[in-house]
Design a protein around this nucleic acid. Sequence first.
RNA 1: GGGGGGUUACCGAAGCGGUCAAACGGGUCAGACUGUAAAUCUGAUGGCUCUGCCUUCGCAGGUUCGAAUCCUGCACCCCCCA
Length: 431
Amino acid sequence: MTFLSDLRWRGLVHQTTDDAGLEIWLEDKPRIVYAGFDPTADSLHVGHMLGLVVLRRFQKAGHKPIAVVGGATGMIGDPTGKSDERNLLSKEDLEKNVVGIAEQMRSFLDFDAGDCSAELVNNLDWTAQWTYLDFLRDVGKNFPVNVMLAKDSVKSRLGRGDDSSPGDGMSYTEFSYMLLQAFDFVHLYDKFGCEIQAGGSDQWGNITAGIDLARRMRSVQLVGMTWPLLTKGDGAKMGKTESGAVWLSAERTSPYQFYQYWFNADDVDVGDCLRMLTELDQEEISSLDDVRQSNAGQRDSQRRLAEELTKLVHGEEGLQSAERATQIFFGAEIADLNDKQLGQIFADVPAKEISRSRLSDGSLTVVDALVEAGLAKSKGDARRTVQQGGAYVNNRRIEEIDTALTEKNLASESVMVLRSGKKKYALLRFK
RNA sequence: GGGGGGUUACCGAAGCGGUCAAACGGGUCAGACUGUAAAUCUGAUGGCUCUGCCUUCGCAGGUUCGAAUCCUGCACCCCCCA
C-alpha cells in the first residue's frame, strides 16, 4: 500500500491538484511538503492536529515536512471562513505564540532526522523584508484581480451587494492575505525546494494561488492537496467544548481533560478520528469498527483513540497521569498518593484551605466538610446528600451524618478529597 | 381620571382563616439502571443545635386564640372604559 493510498483510505485527502499523478510523484522520491499554522494563541489546539498528523505521516513516509507559522499572515488575518474582519495580533504576542507552538510541534515532528528533518519557519522572516513597492512589482503584478475576486473566500465576503446578499466587505489588508500566503510557497520552493503544500479544505484557494504564482514567477508546477475539515456528526467543529477549545498544552487543557475529550467521542465520530488522527494500522482500525458495531458499550474505539492521542501529545507520562486521574475520577478509592500527585490529578478541581487543628479536635463532620468545600449550599443540603448516599471522602462513601473527619481521612500529607454525587469533586487542604 | 385583575419558594402555577414550609409541573441535587451515551425509574429540594425549633407567600400596619388566606395603606404589573 502506498503512502497516498493510505492517506486516501484514512479519508485525509479531500482535493489535490493532480489526482492522477500524485501517487507516483510521491513514490518517486522524497518530497518536501509544507503546511501553515496560524499563531493566534500560544498553544495549538485540537483543530490544528489534523495538519500536524498529516505532516507527521509525510515525514514517516520519508518526506521532509516544513511547518510554517504565520507570523506575517497572522498579523494580517486570513479572511477564509471568517465573517468579520479579524483583530490583528501585536508583534510581541505573535512572537510569544510562535515560541509556544514550536515546542508543541516537537511531539509530532522529528526535527533531527537527517535529510527529512522537519523544519519550523516563520513567514515573518521573509515577508518583513519586502518593501511595499517591491512587493507590488514582483508579487502583486502576478495576481489578476479578477481571479482573486473569484475565490470563494473573497466572494463570500463581498456578497452580491444587494439586499439579500449584502456582504460585509473586507479591507484591502485582508484582500492581500492571499498574496502573502502564495508567496510563502514560492519562497519555500526557492529555499528548500518545497514542492507540495497541504492544508485544510478551506485553504484550497490560497494553495492554488501559490501554485499559480510559482508558475508565473518560477515557471514550475507545484502541487497542492487538502484534507477535509474534521467535524462531528452534528456538524460542530471537533475540539470545541462548552468551556472552550481543547488545547494541546497541558497548562490549558490537562492531559486528563484531553484524554476525556476523546474518550467521550460520539460513536459516529470515533471511526473518522481513529483513521485520520491515529497511526493505528488498517487492520486494527477495522477490528475496532467491528467491535463498535457489535458491542458499542465496550467503547474500545474511544479508549484506543484517547490513548493514542494523549500519548502523542502528552507523551507516555502524560497518558499515565491521565489514566490514573480517570480511574480516580470514576470511583477508585484514593490511597497511597502524595500531595503533588493529587494536585496534578485534581488540578481543575476547586480547593479550600482549612486549619489543621479541626482534624484533631473532631470538630469537622462530613456535613461541615461538604459545606466548607462548597459542595453543598447549606448544612441541610449536605445532610441530605449524605443521607441519600451521595457523599464520599477519598471516594469512599460516607453513610453516617455525624461522622467526624480526622487525620486518618487524609488522602495524602495534607489533602482530603471530597465528592458529592458521581463527579463533583472538591479538595480540602489542611494547613 | 374611572373600573377590574394580579404580585406565592430557582421558574411556572395551586392554595382563599386552622390539618401550609405551602399541591402540581419544570429545573436542580442525590440514588438505581447504563456505554463516563440517551432514555427511564426512585427520593430530595427554606434554615438550624433536626422526632423539635426558627424564618418565608410584594412591602408596612391591623383584625383574630390562629392569616399565604380577612381589613387598611403603599409599591409594582396587567386588562377594560375615558
